[in-house]
Design a protein around this nucleic acid. Structure first.
Length: 463
RNA sequence: GGCCCCUUCGUCUAGUGGUUAGGACACUGGCCUCUCACGCCGGUAACACGAGUUCGAAUCUCGUAGGGGUCACCA
């Protein structure tokens, strides 16, 4: 069985890079009828791990991801780590090191001064006694001058020499708490993780973890190190680059499926396909198709994807999502016309809501440029004539087509062209020269409201 | 600095020895048109560089350059 995991450290929110690796892990597990686990890595900064977990769960819920089983907290698992540390100690695969932090710093400083790579000199590796009044750390005995090789599912064969990349690294601090590279290996094994999909910033940690696996006789999982996401300038993504928190995308009016589609395609592809439903991702995703190189975040493409998903969303879905933006369309009589008109025009739900309000609410003022350009001297007469025409109009005025008929009859009677009146009507309804089709917006506001707004515009023009 | 990784249009990518190097976003010309969008048709634009191997290289090898990651009693 394929078991994957997402193992964030508790930072308070789920960022988009994390969501991408979580998504990859989730897809791969689910595609193989396996399990996707969630583990909070709080061995050291245990302070707000609960909050962080809540934030992750909230984001997961929004995008439709869910871990199998309970969330694991490393802070709850200290006994497990301690027993393994003891085991290594008993088997002479690890040892107590009494070197103090100060001594270590000093050693490092002189090594750096001599242009040497800073590393622990293994002075306690074979020491069997004890030093009074010193709380020792526990270090693992890493093999001397050995090549560690592993086949990364994305990067290919990686091999490093133990002497060049590590020393006898610390697996337990002087207060007894275990360190990251140790617990990761223990947890992944204990949790039965078979495929580790994570950011490639962990690539250089992998040999250390392999040392732990080997010392304990564990089987190695398959590793996939996915390249990171860069900002639009090709630099490391940072808070300054805008939305990092997944939930910000909700606030900005993105549909979760658009975000997921965007993220899954960042570094991964399936031929020329751009749009993926969740089901298709599940069918087509394979971590072996992930690119080796980092990819830059492209906000325009996300927007394009979002508008695409909005365009293809049902009335019900849109009505539901729009409530988050304080727009309740449920009792709007012509909501279908409104949605159809705006679906193709709004790139985000936020924009959708704003544009809706522009139509639904009577304009408080009129766009100056539009007024200057389209409301010429004769506009007031045309508006008045149309107002009269509308007031005594006998036919039904229900849908967009009815208004189109009405307008064309009016134009014919007065010997006018559409462009003579279109912008006047538009400005009267939304207050600017930009909106969906006038027939649609007339139908949406309805005859009475239309009359009211035209009157208001006439009044405005008269002063 | 040591070690490791990476390099196809501006961006996301397809491509696995023989292609006019394909698609998408963005940009742009046009059509549609009551404005703005949508949509449709078209255009600009890339194999980092240099050596090899080969009849033939974006694809294989080696260098160079550039970018990134990592070197903690952080994760």
């Amino acid at each position: 069985m394929v078991i994957t995991r997402f193992a964030p450290s508790p930072t308070g929110y789920l960022h988009i890079g994390g969501l991408r690796t979580a998504l990859y892990s989730y897809l791969w597990a689910k595609k193989n009828d396996g399990k996707f686990l969630l583990r909070i890595e709080d061995t050291d900064l245990k302070r707000n791990s609960k909050e962080a977990a809540d934030a992750i769960e909230e984001a997961f819920k929004w995008v439709g991801l869910k871990q199998d089983g309970d969330i694991y907290y490393q802070s709850d698992r200290m006994d497990i780590y301690k027993s393994y540390i003891q085991k290594l100690l008993d088997e002479d695969k690890a040892y107590y090191c009494y070197m103090s932090k100060d001594e270590l710093d000093e050693l490092r400083a002189t090594q750096m001064k001599n242009k040497q790579r800073p590393r622990y000199d293994r002075r306690y590796r074979n020491f069997t006694g004890s030093v009074p009044d010193v709380k020792p750390v526990v270090r693992i005995k890493t093999p001397v001058n050995e090549i560690i090789k592993f086949d990364d599912g994305i990067k290919g064969m990686i091999s490093v020499n133990t002497d060049e990349v590590m020393d006898d690294f610390i697996i337990a601090r002087s207060d007894g708490s275990p360190t990251y590279n140790f617990v990761v290996a223990i947890d992944d094994h204990e949790m039965g993780v078979t495929e580790v999909i994570r950011g490639d910033d962990h690539l250089s940690n992998t040999p250390k973890q392999i040392i732990v696996y080997r010392a304990l006789g564990f089987d190695l999982p398959k590793f996939y190190h996915v390249p990171m996401i860069l900002n639009p300038n090709g630099k490391k993504l940072s808070k300054r680059d805008g939305a990092m928190d997944v939930m910000e995308y909700k606030k900005e009016g993105y549909l979760p499926e658009a975000l997921l589609n965007f993220l899954v395609r960042l570094g991964w592809s399936h031929k020329d396909q751009e749009i993926f439903s969740f089901k298709e991702m599940l069918e087509l995703f394979n971590p072996k198709d992930i690119n080796k190189s980092a990819s830059a975040y492209n906000a325009e493409k996300l927007l394009w994807l979002n508008s695409n998903f909005i365009k293809n969303s049902s009335y019900e879905r849109l009505i539901k999502e729009l409530k988050f933006f304080d727009l309740n369309l449920e009792n709007i009589e012509k909501k279908e016309i409104l949605i159809d008109a705006l679906r193709e025009r709004a790139k985000t739900l936020k924009e959708f809501a704003e544009k809706s309000r522009l139509i639904l609410n009577e304009p408080q003022d009129y766009d100056q440029k539009a007024v200057k350009k389209f409301l010429k001297a004769e506009a007031i007469e045309i508006a008045k004539e149309f107002l009269n025409y509308l007031t005594v109009y006998k036919e039904d005025l229900n849908n967009s087509n009815d208004y189109e008929v009405c307008i064309s009859k009016f134009l014919e009677e007065k010997n006018l062209k559409l462009k003579n009146i279109a912008q006047i009507i538009r400005i009267s309804i939304v207050g600017s020269a930009v909106s969906p089709s006038i027939y649609d917006i007339m139908a949406i506001v309805g005859q009475n409201e239309l009359i009211k707004r035209i009157k208001k515009l006439i009044k405005f023009m008269e002063v």
